[in-house]
Structures are given as C-alpha cells and as structure tokens.
Computed example of a mutant assay.
Amino acid sequence: MTGAVVVLIINLIVAGLLSASFTMVAVYDPKQVAARWIACVYGLGAFYVLVEFGIANLGGSRLVVVGSFAAFLLALALFNVGIARKYLVPVPWRLMAAVLAVSIIACYLIQDMPRESFLRMMIYQVPYFVMQAIGAGTLWRARARGRLDTVLMCLLAMSSLQFLSKPFLSQALGGTGASPQTYLSTDYALVSQAMGTVFAIAIALLFLVILARDVIGDVRILSETDALSRLLNRGGFEDRAKALLRKADAGGRPMALVICDLDHFKAVNDTFGHASGDRVIRAFAGFLRDTASAEHVAGRIGGEEFAILLPGANLVTARLFAEAARTAFCGLPVEGLPPHLRFTASFGVAERMPRETLSDLLSRADKALYEAKRGGRDCVRVATDYPDGRYDARAS
C-alpha cells in the first residue's frame, strides 16, 4: 500500500467524520444554515474520494473522470454557499455556475492531452483555484469579520494557491503517472493528497470552531435575555453594566442610571388578566428598545421594573431622557387592550459618583423611584447625594 493510498483512506475517514460533525451542529441549532451546506460538502468529498479510488484501481472512462472532477468542484461551490449563508453575503450563483460549466467542458476536452502535459494540469487545477478563491472573496465581503473569520479567509486564499501550485509540483516530482492506475504510486500523488488533506482539515476544524463560537454566543444571549420582554434579565443587565462601569473608571466617562416602574400594574392584571399585563410589559419593553441607543444597556430587573444604563450621560441628560420616555409612553395604546386606555410609568434617575459600585448606584436610583411613586406616579425624580450623606430626590 503506497503512501498516497493511505492518505486517500485518511481523507475518506476524515470527510465522513466532518460531514457527521457539521450535521450534528445543524441538528442541534437549526439556525446554523451554513452547517447544512458544509455537511453536504464533506459528504460529497467522501464520494469524490471513493471515485478516485475506483479510477486509480479500475480505470475510468472519460465521463467518469470528468464526473469526479465535477464532484470536487461542486463541493467547493457548495462550501462557498455555506460561507455566504454564514456571513450573510449574497451567493455568487451566476459566477459559480459559469465556472462550473466552462470547467467541466474544459476537463472533458483535455482528456486527449498527454497526462504529463503541464498545460493539461494547469487547465485541470485552475478551476479549483478559482472556486476556492471565490470563497475567500465571499468572506472578504462580510461586514462583520472577527479574528477567527479573518484566519479562515486567509486559509481559503492559501488553499486556492495550493491548487495553482500543483502543475509545478507535478513537473518537479516526476509527473502524475503514465495512467490512472499508476497515479497513486507517484511522489506527486502523495504530496498532492497530503496538501489537500492538511488544508481541508484545517479549514473544516476552524469552521467548526467558528460555528461553536456562535452557538455558545447564542446560548449566552438566551441565558441573559428575559423571555417576555426580550430585554436583558437582571443577571444579564448587571453583567453588562459592571463591564461598562469598569470602562468608565478607566476612561473617566460620566454615567447615569434610570429605573422605571409601571404604575398600577397589579390593577391591570386584576382587571384584564395576566395575559394583558404581559402585553403591557412587552409594549413598554419594545418602547424602551426603540428609545434607547445602541450604547445604552436596558434590562427588566423585576416584575414590572426596568433599568437603563446611560454611558456618557450626566444627570441633566439622563433626566431629559427619562422625562421624554415618560411623556411618550403615556400616549401609547397597547395592542389587545381597549384603545382608550393609556398606561404610565414612574422614573428614578441617578448619576454615578466616582468609583461608585453598581449596587450603590441602583440603590440611589431606586430611592428616587420610590419618591416618584410617593409623589403621585407618572413623574420623574432625580437622586442627589451630598458629601455629608444627606439624600434628596428632586422632582423633574
């Protein structure tokens, strides 16, 4: 058994395992559409290896050889579809279809050329180079690309170049053999198959790591998200807020906290039922999402209590935000409830003092909220602490 045969056997096993791995990812998380495409890629890759075995041991007609070539090229095309789906980039269907059509015709026509011909090898390998380069180019067009994604793009570019190097390797290593049956005994076959294996495994494992990163990220988001309001839950809010407080300490930025509570919420549940109360919570949470900017951190920290952390905001800015939110919300109808009904919320505002902990900031804002409740609800109170420890909650 030659070294090239051993590598082909390894390729077959690895392709099968990778196809199964990506299938498991797709089953576990149906949102990972790319995993389905990549599972098909490596399934098709395993079929390609079997065909290569057949051609090397039994020979093959022109159509079988062209079919083997087309199967591998199609696998590369499907990989590009997976890349495009993963990174939300338009799939270059027309370009890939043109490459497939022209390449298959060219592969059919070169079968009469000598196997050792450099031109024949170049015509055979260039389509693989182009198809893999399309994948790298597709990833280059992705808007959001982290470090791992950039490494994957570089691997795809390097993989495309290794296809382009094979005609030169063939000349340097003594050719591809006088016939398909002698191909696997050549040094070129060993080097070529080994190169392909290294790149295929590296690309697949990195793609699996990227998918796993995204799945873990989704799980973390779900664990930090309140199912009813789709805002951060208390734990998620506190984690994000503490991270922002650390950044504020390092950069000296001001920061303010707004706590709000829906007024007479128990009466809503008692009068219209808990389903209607849930509608009010969803309506208020949606209103907060629309009102807050991308830099703000909003969460549902209690039954009908919400908090918004405003990085870069001082007391005046936070007070204006709270007052605008209060005024706008009390004019909004809630779907599913009588159209004449309007709901209100009370707000407590506190500006963070130097090096103040989140717990202390929450406590001061909560005191201001309590004063807003005592002051008749549907209003804003601003917490002000003095150096001597006195506390005041000023009306807006």
Rank of each mutant, 00 (worst) to 15 (best):
L190F: 15
G177A: 01
G43K: 10
L206W: 03
I105K: 01
G137F: 07
E356A: 00
A292I: 05
E238Y: 03
V334P: 00
A322S: 02
I83M: 15
E335L: 10
G217P: 08
L139V: 13
G303N: 05
T138P: 07
V65C: 10
R377Q: 10
L208T: 06
V349R: 12
A256H: 04
G177S: 00
L228N: 07
D249Q: 11
E52M: 08
Y128A: 04
G43L: 12
P254K: 07
A98P: 01
D290N: 12
D239R: 12
S179Q: 03
R230E: 15
A26K: 08
T327Q: 06
Y188R: 03
R234I: 01
L315T: 12
S229F: 12
M96R: 12
S346F: 01
R364W: 08
M24F: 09
M153T: 14
N57K: 01
L12R: 08
F163C: 14
C379M: 15
F284G: 08
A212F: 08
L228K: 08
S179L: 02
Y87R: 11
L288G: 02
Q125W: 08
A256I: 10
L245K: 00
A4R: 09
A368I: 01
V215Q: 13
V5I: 15
D378F: 14
V297E: 04
S223H: 06
V7W: 08
R381K: 11
S21Q: 11
V49R: 10
N80P: 01
G299E: 00
L288S: 01
T2W: 02
L190Y: 14
V66C: 11
A39Q: 01
P30S: 11
D187P: 08
I9V: 02
P333A: 06
